[in-house]
Amino acid sequence: DHWEIRVGDITIHLKDVDEEIIRWVEEALRNGDDLEEIKRWVEEVLR
């Protein structure tokens, strides 16, 4: 699977990601969370 999350001008590409993570990231972006923080979290989860 390949996911693209778009929020404003930001697009995040994710592969082999659980839908729950996608929802979490979308929510975090909508809440204005720091992008670097989100990326770190996702990388942590995917490890």
Rank of each mutant, 00 (worst) to 15 (best):
D1E: 12
W3H: 07
E4R: 01
R6I: 14
R6E: 09
R6L: 09
V7N: 05
V7P: 02
V7F: 13
V7A: 04
V7T: 02
G8P: 02
G8Q: 05
G8T: 04
D9P: 06
D9L: 11
D9R: 03
I10E: 05
I10L: 12
I10M: 09
T11M: 10
I12T: 02
I12M: 08
H13S: 10
L14C: 05
K15M: 11
K15L: 04
D16T: 11
D16W: 06
D16R: 04
V17I: 10
V17S: 05
V17F: 08
D18A: 14
E19W: 15
E19V: 10
E20K: 06
E20F: 09
I21L: 08
I21N: 01
I22K: 10
R23C: 03
R23K: 13
R23N: 07
W24F: 09
W24Y: 13
W24P: 00
W24V: 08
V25T: 01
E26Y: 11
E26Q: 11
E27Y: 08
A28D: 00
A28K: 14
A28I: 13
A28Y: 04
L29F: 07
L29Q: 01
L29I: 13
L29Y: 04
L29K: 01
R30E: 08
R30I: 08
N31F: 07
N31W: 04
N31H: 07
G32A: 08
D33H: 10
D33C: 15
D34T: 15
D34A: 11
L35I: 13
L35G: 03
E36I: 06
E37C: 07
E37F: 06
I38N: 00
I38W: 03
I38F: 04
K39H: 11
K39M: 15
K39N: 07
R40C: 01
R40P: 00
W41V: 14
W41E: 02
V42W: 04
V42F: 06
E43P: 00
E43C: 12
E43N: 04
E44M: 03
E44H: 04
V45D: 01
L46H: 01
R47E: 14
R47C: 11
R47L: 15
